[in-house]
Structures are given as structure tokens and as C-alpha cells.
């Protein structure tokens, strides 16, 4: 199983330093929450990890390799980054057929993941008519299509109804229980507290804290209190 390793990562957009000497690990068999205020550099870090954005310095690897060097990336990493990242005129099934072909995955997996995501009845509808929650479910279905070892999810609970959030929680816990590596960014601290084993907290591109949730909340404070205390300290 693959470990995610971030070392000395730096990314600047003009005068703005989005990611500043960031280092952390995400180990297999755990769900790790990636937390931080808006603009903390979470999405940029995930996009660097996935080879979509080029880092100014440092390395981001999955199983010791950069994403661009993975032999069959979709078999190793499933990612959900943007709910709107589908062509609105395409059906969900057609989208998954494209993904299955891209991953050289068994086409029978399409029905499996549609069923898993609760989208079987909507499979032949155009994605333009989907709710945000349905798009999130489709994104997760696409991410799971090639049975990856690692899941990297950016705000996956956005738009999900309570049942969907519960489904997602079960999915992530089950994935980690089978030895998978999960890195999930989220603003929903209460939900994160119920789902993750460890957290990585960033603020203004810098690492603020990293470790098991139990350690961060050892003083009796909840994750939310610990988060605000840590990010407040970071701004001083």
C-alpha cells in the first residue's frame, strides 16, 4: 500500500505564496483529514500531489513516485477535485465508460460503482441535470472505478445530504480498513472529527499541526476548538 509523502513543498502564484515549505506524510490504513481555512493552500497542495500544478520546490510523492511517473495512475490513485468537472451534456454512464477506458478497467466495474454511489437509476441522465450531491457521488464512483490504493478527495461532502455524508463516511472508513490511504480535505470539522484518524492542519500554506486526532484533542478540547486555536496561533 502507498504512503503519501510531501517534503518541503513550495508554490508561489506571483507575489502570493500558496504553499510554504510544507511537509507531512499520510500512511496507509488511515483516513487523514487535510484542514485549513480558505486560502490555506489545501487545494493547491492536492493539485501538486496529483501532477496538475507544478511545485516551485519540494516533492510530493505517492508510493515514492510523483503522480506523473505512476505507470497506471488511475489504478493507484482515485481523486475527486471538482464537482463541476464533467461535461454537462454527457450521461453518467458515458462518463464512466470514458473513465473505464482511460483506466483500462473492466467495464463491468461501471455498474458496480454506479450501484455503490446510488446512481444506477440516474446513469443514463445527462450530468447537466444532476444536483451537486449527485455530481459528488459520480466523482467518487469515477475515482473508485479502477480500484485504487489511494483516495485523494477535495471537499467530497459538499452538496451531499445527511444520508450521503453518512454513506461517504462509511465508504472512507471501509476503504482505510482494507489498507487504503485516504487524504480528504474538508471544511466540515464536525464531520471530519467523526471520520478521520489523523489530521494535517495548514494555514497560509504552512503546516500548523499534524498527527492523530486523539493527540490533538488530548486536552479535552474537541477537534473544532483545537483547529481554531491552532490556526489562530498561526495568525499571531
Amino acid at each position: 500500500m502507498a504512503t503519501i509523502q510531501i517534503r518541503g513543498l513550495v508554490k508561489r502564484f506571483g507575489p502570493v505564496t500558496a504553499v510554504d515549505s510544507l511537509s507531512f506524510d499520510v500512511t496507509p490504513g488511515t483516513v487523514t483529514g487535510f484542514l485549513g481555512p480558505n486560502g490555506a493552500g489545501k487545494t493547491t497542495t492536492l493539485r501538486i500531489l496529483l501532477g496538475l500544478v507544478t511545485a516551485g520546490a519540494g516533492t510530493a510523492t505517492i508510493g515514492g513516485r510523483s503522480y506523473r511517473d505512476l505507470a497506471e495512475p488511475l489504478h493507484q490513485v482515485g481523486a475527486v477535485l471538482e464537482a463541476a468537472g464533467f461535461h454537462p451534456g454527457r450521461t453518467a454512464r458515458a462518463q464512466l465508460r470514458i473513465q473505464a477506458l482511460a483506466a483500462a478497467a473492466d467495464p463491468s466495474r461501471i455498474e458496480d460503482v454506479l450501484d455503490l454511489a446510488g446512481l444506477t437509476d440516474a446513469a443514463d441522465r445527462r450530468i447537466g441535470g444532476f444536483s451537486l450531491g449527485m455530481r459528488q457521488r459520480l466523482g467518487l464512483a469515477a475515482a473508485l472505478l479502477a480500484d485504487p490504493e489511494v483516495l485523494i478527495l477535495d471537499e467530497p461532502a459538499n452538496g451531499l445530504d445527511p444520508e450521503g455524508v453518512r454513506w461517504l463516511r462509511g465508504l472512507l472508513r471501509g476503504f482505510a480498513a482494507e489498507g487504503g490511504t485516504v487524504l480528504v480535505s474538508s471544511h466540515l470539522l464536525a464531520e471530519v472529527a467523526q471520520t478521520v484518524d489523523s489530521v494535517v492542519i495548514v494555514d497560509r500554506g504552512r503546516l500548523v499541526a499534524a498527527g492523530p486526532v486523539a493527540e490533538l484533542t488530548a486536552g479535552g478540547a474537541g477537534l473544532e476548538d483545537a483547529f481554531f486555536q491552532l490556526t489562530k496561533e498561526g495568525t499571531r
Binding site: 496529483l50 501532477g51 496538475l52 506523473r68 495512475p73 464533467f86 482511460a102 469515477a142
Partner: peptide
């Protein structure tokens, strides 16, 4: 349509 993300995740080259 922001599908470039999915495209380049599947084929980073």
C-alpha cells in the same frame, strides 16, 4: 467544462 482535470489525472503525459 473543467474536464481537463479528469483528463490529465488519467493521462499525466
Amino acid at each position: 467544462h473543467h474536464t481537463a482535470t479528469l483528463t490529465y489525472l488519467a493521462t499525466p503525459a
